[in-house]
Simulated assay, not measured.
Amino acid sequence: MTVRTKPTPAQRIRYICGGTLPNSMAAWVVDDLTGPGAARRYLLRILIPVIGPLCLFLLIPGPLWMGLAMMALLYLPLIYFTIALMNVYRRHRLAEHGLDPALADTHRRQRAAIERQAYERRHGRA
């Protein structure tokens, strides 16, 4: 039996719903949470599924704008807090999989190091 490095569709759905994956898929988890497109995937996974239940407000009798306003009163803060807690979520998911939570900041640290080197070159310190 070969060791899988990518999740099956069933494993992926379980992962999206908060489940953990086997250790053999650790590299995939790190790439999913910190790689290119990670922020987009995170936002889509949280913000798209809640639209269906929010549409139930449109069934309340009254003008359309009232149902839309009630939806907006819940959806706009959700967007704000989803963005604000993105790094907390990433760190939590990495820790859940037994990985170092500091991996969530790898790209930020690399950018800071590049900026620092450029700064030192500009000011004659390198």
Results as ranks from 00 to 15, higher is better:
103 L>M: 14
17 C>D: 02
65 W>S: 08
21 L>A: 10
64 L>P: 01
5 T>C: 13
104 A>R: 02
92 H>C: 05
65 W>Q: 09
118 A>R: 15
40 R>L: 13
115 E>I: 09
115 E>V: 06
31 D>V: 08
66 M>R: 12
118 A>I: 12
86 M>K: 08
20 T>H: 02
8 T>R: 10
46 I>L: 08
117 Q>A: 10
33 L>G: 01
72 A>K: 08
101 P>T: 14
25 M>G: 06
32 D>Q: 03
66 M>E: 08
70 M>Q: 04
61 P>D: 04
119 Y>S: 14
42 Y>R: 02
86 M>D: 03
36 P>T: 15
60 I>Y: 00
123 H>W: 12
44 L>E: 05
71 M>K: 02
89 Y>F: 10
43 L>M: 12
84 A>C: 08
92 H>L: 09
28 W>N: 01
36 P>S: 15
41 R>T: 11
100 D>S: 08
90 R>G: 06
16 I>Q: 02
100 D>F: 12
15 Y>N: 03
56 L>N: 09
38 A>G: 02
46 I>Y: 02
50 V>T: 11
94 L>S: 02
31 D>T: 13
114 I>W: 10
46 I>G: 00
88 V>E: 00
63 P>W: 12
31 D>F: 09
59 L>M: 13
44 L>F: 07
51 I>T: 11
72 A>V: 11
96 E>R: 13
41 R>H: 10
108 R>N: 07
70 M>K: 03
79 I>L: 08
76 L>N: 05
37 G>L: 06
7 P>R: 07
96 E>N: 14
105 D>T: 13
1 M>S: 15
48 I>V: 15
85 L>Q: 14
28 W>L: 07
85 L>A: 15
76 L>S: 04
92 H>D: 08
109 R>C: 03
2 T>C: 04
87 N>W: 14
79 I>V: 14
27 A>K: 14
113 A>Y: 13
46 I>E: 01
121 R>N: 12
69 A>M: 06
87 N>H: 14
31 D>L: 09
82 T>H: 02
69 A>H: 02
61 P>A: 05
82 T>E: 01
3 V>H: 06
124 G>P: 01
29 V>I: 05
111 R>P: 00
70 M>V: 07
86 M>G: 05
101 P>Y: 09
65 W>K: 07
47 L>S: 04
28 W>T: 02
53 P>I: 00
15 Y>A: 05
21 L>T: 14
34 T>H: 01
21 L>K: 07
107 H>G: 15
106 T>P: 00
75 Y>K: 01
3 V>L: 14
9 P>T: 08
116 R>L: 11
75 Y>E: 01
111 R>W: 09
53 P>F: 00
1 M>C: 11
97 H>P: 13
80 Y>R: 12
113 A>E: 14
27 A>N: 15
78 L>P: 12
73 L>S: 00
126 A>D: 11
10 A>M: 08
119 Y>R: 12
55 C>I: 06
76 L>A: 14
115 E>D: 09
122 R>M: 11
40 R>C: 07
75 Y>F: 12
9 P>Q: 10
56 L>S: 13
92 H>N: 11
26 A>G: 11
118 A>L: 15
91 R>F: 05
30 V>P: 01
124 G>E: 03
